[in-house]
Design a protein around this nucleic acid. Structure first.
Lengths: 226, 226
DNA sequence: TCAATAGTGTCTGTCAGACATTATTAC
DNA sequence: GTAATAATGTCTGACAGACACTATTGA
């Protein structure tokens, strides 16, 4: 490690892939850039790491998200780092990216410079953000089949039908109702709230919530997905 | 993104967790630091990103490894980033860490400032490298049970007994011989070389190699591990 | 009653784990 | 033969997937 005083440090930024489900599609939150580079283009919400105030990259990410899209307290998971001389025209840069899966209701923003875009219909994106989103999607689908990850898209109270639908949306496949419920019951992931929800002219569904201490843990919820 | 000219960039480094199996134990390659900070302490091999010559963080990692421990052409996987004001006494820093799993025979070094240390018997380590190694270990064990990751520890030709032993070492459990072989056969991961290896007074074992195109892919090789 | 979804019960093929058995070598 | 590991065969319980069936509501 040359403790060389001539070392130049790269630009350090953080970017977030915030995913949610809307209209039975996985969507990503995009932010329109209001300055160069890529002024006017859509991009992941992101910004510089501030070494004078941020405790680490995740803290920088939370600060940026609060400033730009008004979200607070999201569960953030580190995704990967992207680096190189060409990805940012300002110079050799490192972006530390994060992933958040949130229920649609947890996002509040008034159109204009923020939008939710379906993963299958992304606009042109600034920097290498299209690649980052593609990687995030691969992670979501990959982990979706053997973890409780898709449950992160659910609001605090939900029906089993909604839960199954979230898994099907993430995985892009149909899941047998009976198998799904049996597995959920076996894993002891959720508990009844005691309430029901009636919607339209059909049998009302029981409401459930995630049990305490159920984070994202790796147990198969939906296997054999063709 | 304040295109603020007063932004200070953090120190950017790369560090590698190079794991191998020796004496039926998973070991990590450590390098003794020859300068401050932490001069004389054991640390992961690492160094600064050089923005004037590295194409990205992985290229920086390969350059550092070639310089410090003489390894080339390893398969490197990005692990995670670690950042903050306190982890490096030189200032607010980001380390982009990488993971490599290699057969013992692929590592060549003459003692002194490089050693292999068992994960269960690590010396005191510089920076936050103990934490990084703990995270790498968790990843190895976690992915070991549902992927071909442990096969990366095998030399080009190996017996089924060696393959099973590698899995058992990684997972820290016993695997039933019959189940293991059945699964390996079903997944079509390996092929016979046609050679055998005889060792001591017992039946010689057939030698196998990984089939073309078998990288690290996620299929259960050893399930139900207690 | 019908439509629509909620929720349950049952059968079956697959497969992991356990365990027994045979094969092959050096001594 | 004995010791030691290599390699294969067989049984069984668990469980995912398929699918049929019942439950409950509004109209």
């Amino acid at each position: 490690m040359p403790a060389d005083e001539t070392i130049q440090y790269p630009i350090a930024t953080v970017d977030a892939v915030i995913l949610t489900i809307e209209d039975d599609q996985v969507k990503v939150l995009l932010h329109r850039r209001d300055r160069d580079p890529f002024k006017g283009d859509w991009a992941l919400p992101g910004g510089f790491v501030h070494v004078d105030e941020d405790a680490d990259a995740e803290a920088a990410m939370r600060r940026v998200l609060a400033e730009k899209v008004g979200t607070n307290g999201l569960y953030l998971e580190q995704l990967a780092s992207y680096s190189g001389p060409a990805r940012d025209p300002r110079g050799w840069s490192i972006s530390i990216t994060h992933l958040a899966l949130v229920p649609r209701g947890a996002l509040e923003f008034e159109g204009g410079d923020v939008q939710l875009a379906a993963l299958d219909a992304l606009p042109d994106l600034a920097f290498d953000h299209a690649r980052i989103i593609a990687d995030a999607r691969a992670r979501l689908v990959g982990k979706g089949s053997y973890s409780t990850l898709p449950a992160s898209f659910l609001p605090p109270e939900f029906t089993l039908g909604e839960m199954q639908k979230a898994y099907e949306t993430v995985l892009g496949t149909q899941i047998d109702q009976s198998s799904f419920r049996r597995k959920v019951a076996d894993l002891d992931l959720i508990e009844e709230t005691g309430e029901t929800r009636r919607e339209g002219r059909r049998r009302p569904a029981k409401l459930f919530r995630l049990r305490d201490g159920i984070g994202t843990f790796d147990r198969t919820l939906a296997t054999g997905l063709g």
